[in-house]
Amino acid sequence: MRQNVTFGQYYPTGSIIHRLDPRLKILLSVAMIVEVFLIQTYVGFAILGAYLLLTILLSKIPLTTLLKTVRGVLFLVLFTAICNLFLYNPVDAGNEYTWWIFRVSDASIDYAVRMALRLVMLVMSASMLTLVTTPIELTDGIESLLSPLKVFKFPTHDLALIMSIALRFVPTLMDETDKIMMAQKSRGADFESGGLISRAKALVPILIPLLVSAFRRAEELAEAMDSRCYNTTTARTRRKVFRIGYADVIAIMSNALLLLLIISANVIF
């Protein structure tokens, strides 16, 4: 029955990238996103591209897997590029090429290509984070990064607990949905044909049992948590401690170098 569903797209290879501190991975991904927008020159794109490629190679994730994530947003990339191609029209646009009602210029081609490159690199950087970090590590990382907010009475731990429970129940509820769907299919239910209304109606025999079960589970979970002394009175222990290792330091330094190179490329070229 269990289909070993993994939530998100974590791709286990056990590489050095996978083993980096999750907080650092989150911060570095944010840094890469900022860097993508800082880039102004093609040399800059080449440098960032090389950096991305190096990360991918180190993570031992097949390039095709990463390209698949780009495929998901390909339409968006093309759409933005085409819009920019025809609509971007600055004063000093260089050579102009006209065909029927379409008119493009050197400047708009340049702009469209940059925009496409930016989007692709953006998606790749973000995907890398979820490919090399388990959802649990992400939760822990976010909790730790948000912990300074505790000063303002922000309930970081409760937030992390909510995220952790949600993640924990995703496979359980997916299995459950699967089972209910199969049971109703066995009773002749048809989810694939018919118009919009009849399809929506066909979902009722799935959604109601699923809701009933989710409530039952929530109630039981609450009792189990109560039984294990969950409360808001006592101060909770924070068990997770992250330690920064050599690899983490190298990752930080390499990213700092990347930033430096991108800025100097902007200045020089």
């Binding site: 649990i136 952790s164 294990r228 969950y230 006592t234 909770r236 068990r239």
Partner: peptide, 16 residues
């Protein structure tokens, strides 16, 4: 409550 065995076992004592 947790997606890793040790985190789940720690839940009770952490609460206390």
């Amino acid at each position: 409550v947790a997606g890793v065995v040790e985190d789940d076992i720690a839940f009770g004592p952490e609460n206390l």
